[in-house]
């Protein structure tokens, strides 16, 4: 059984891990695919369209990835909040 402080510090550690993970994708999709590796990616086409892949990431793809990241973040954080409040509930019952 976790103490309240342990539950909170676990919550924070998990938050940081998720944020770092999401930021890596953020970087790769925008500054990576849209800027650093754009010329390499431009050798390919976005399947089914006439857009070069690097160009697409730079002008539309990165924005779509950002949206998915924020949706994921909302979902993940709500679950972490839920987990924490259950753990805290447990410690309060224990206390009684």
């Amino acid at each position: 059984m976790l103490t309240a402080d342990e539950a909170r510090s676990r919550y924070w550690k998990k938050t940081i891990l998720w944020v770092v993970g999401l930021l890596i994708i953020w970087f790769a999709a925008s500054l990576g695919c849209g800027v650093l590796w754009v010329d390499q990616l431009d050798q390919f086409m976005l399947p089914g369209t006439g857009i070069k892949l690097g160009f697409w990431f730079a002008q539309q793809g990165s924005i779509l990835v950002f949206l998915c990241l924020l949706a994921a973040f909302v979902f993940i954080m709500n679950r972490l909040d839920q987990e924490l409040s259950e753990a805290i509930e447990d410690t309060r019952k224990e206390g009684k």
Binding site: I63, F66, M77
Partner: peptide
């Protein structure tokens, strides 16, 4: 042309930083 992407990415990508690191 492609150089204009800096505004598209810059002015939307900031919201990821904002949501993950600052706003909450």
């Amino acid at each position: 042309g492609r150089d204009g992407s800096r505004f598209l990415m810059g002015w939307t990508g900031g919201y990821v930083l904002l949501a993950l690191l600052l706003a909450p």
